[in-house]
Amino acid sequence: MEDDVKVLLIEDDVAAAEMYRLRLVADGYSVVIGRDGHEGLRMAADEAPDFIYLDLRLPGLDGFEVLERLRADAATMHIPVIILTNYGEPDLRERGLKLGALEFLVKADTTPAQLSDSVERATGPRALPST
């Protein structure tokens, strides 16, 4: 599909990644998953996603480091990023938003439907689900 919106999930929790992917795919997005910080960065550069969900607690590089590097690279600096984590502390939230994250979502409080809505908010109306 030409106007296919590609979402990169940088998430080491297999169960969480799989669940959000199910919903995003059902809503017509194409989804790729990076399992750790380094893989996430590589995929952000190689796959040119339209949108990134970023976990904070990750093997290798943590989410903040990933975000800093995304912002420092001309190829990835404009990709919208939403932090998706189980850490809801205000100082982390503030740090994430300062680093340029669009939103800061707590996984336990974010259903797949709400997650999908957040992509739509960030990238405009979603593509039609493929049938």
């Binding site: 169960a15 969480a16 199910l22 707590v106 259903t111 439907a113």
Partner: peptide
């Protein structure tokens, strides 16, 4: 506790809304 809770909430909300693809039901 939050991390398994997120999965339980997520899947049960999808089951409730009926938005889960048939193939995902067993996984859920």
């Amino acid at each position: 506790l939050r991390s398994p809770l997120g999965i339980i909430r997520g899947y049960s909300s999808m089951l409730g809304e009926g938005t889960l693809p048939e193939a995902g039901r067993d996984v859920a």
